[in-house]
Computed example of a mutant assay.
Amino acid sequence: MNKKNYRYLSVITAISVLVVWFVITEVLSISTLIFPSPKSVLIAFGEVLKTGYKNYSIWRHILDSLKRIFEAFFWATIIFVPLGLLCGYRPRLRAIMEPIITFIRPLPPLAYYSVIVLWMGIGDESKVMLLFIAAAPPIYVSCVDGISKVNVDYINAAKTLGANKFQIFWKVMFWAALPDIFTGLRNSIAGAYGTLVAAEMVAAMSGIGWMALDASKYLRSDIIFVAIIIMGITGLLLDSVLKLIDKKVIFWKGKE
């Protein structure tokens, strides 16, 4: 089956979801307070698009959330890509870092967010820090795994040609691990986005996550769905950008 057929199936899936949504809300007459209809969500979207939500335009909410995510993702990438690669290359350093990452990874964000707020206040710094902690482990784990499973034949071939340790690390191991690094980056930004609502719970006045939380206080399930859909679409766009960069940078992937 070619790519065109796969896209066709994706469109069918999306249409099927919309049809099921319509049937549940319109035919079965479920209360809109519990489960809004596609029509009410569309009306709510037009409302926030035209007048904004709580003194801010929808674009301001989106940009504020993306700013927090990008800042956290940037620092997680800058710090944990080199650290993960080094830990994969140096077992001693990995033994030092592994307990810390293993301890942080399964912790739910709300478990330590109150501590971050106590340390850093209620401004954007604490929100970015929470997103940073969510974004860091996937990058670290993917980098370590990528370095650890580099084909030994590549390393031996480089040694045979007279490469030193730095050349082996940079010109062989790094590039061989690059597919795993990009997988980690995609998982990282997804993890950060999944933590967005928790990050915007405390003392936020804008952001898509905050919009969903605030709307829940007033039983505006239609606004909640608008926020969820916006988060889903922007998340898909961010992932698509990373996939495009992945395809351009790692042009040899799948051609070994």
Rank of each mutant, 00 (worst) to 15 (best):
A135L: 06
A136R: 13
P137R: 05
P137T: 09
P137G: 08
P138W: 02
Y140S: 12
Y140H: 08
Y140K: 08
S142Y: 14
D145W: 04
G146D: 04
G146K: 02
G146W: 05
S148E: 04
K149W: 08
V150P: 00
N151H: 09
V152F: 10
V152K: 02
V152E: 04
V152C: 07
D153I: 12
I155F: 04
I155K: 08
I155T: 06
N156M: 08
N156S: 03
A157N: 03
A157I: 15
A158S: 10
A158T: 14
T160K: 12
T160G: 14
L161I: 13
L161S: 08
G162S: 10
G162Q: 05
A163W: 14
A163E: 08
N164F: 08
K165N: 14
K165T: 15
F166T: 00
I168E: 03
F169P: 01
F169H: 06
K171E: 15
F174V: 15
F174L: 12
W175C: 01
A176L: 08
A177D: 09
A177V: 04
A177E: 07
A177H: 11
L178T: 05
P179M: 06
P179A: 07
D180F: 12
D180R: 15
I181A: 05
I181S: 06
F182R: 02
G184E: 04
G184V: 00
G184T: 04
L185R: 02
L185V: 05
L185W: 10
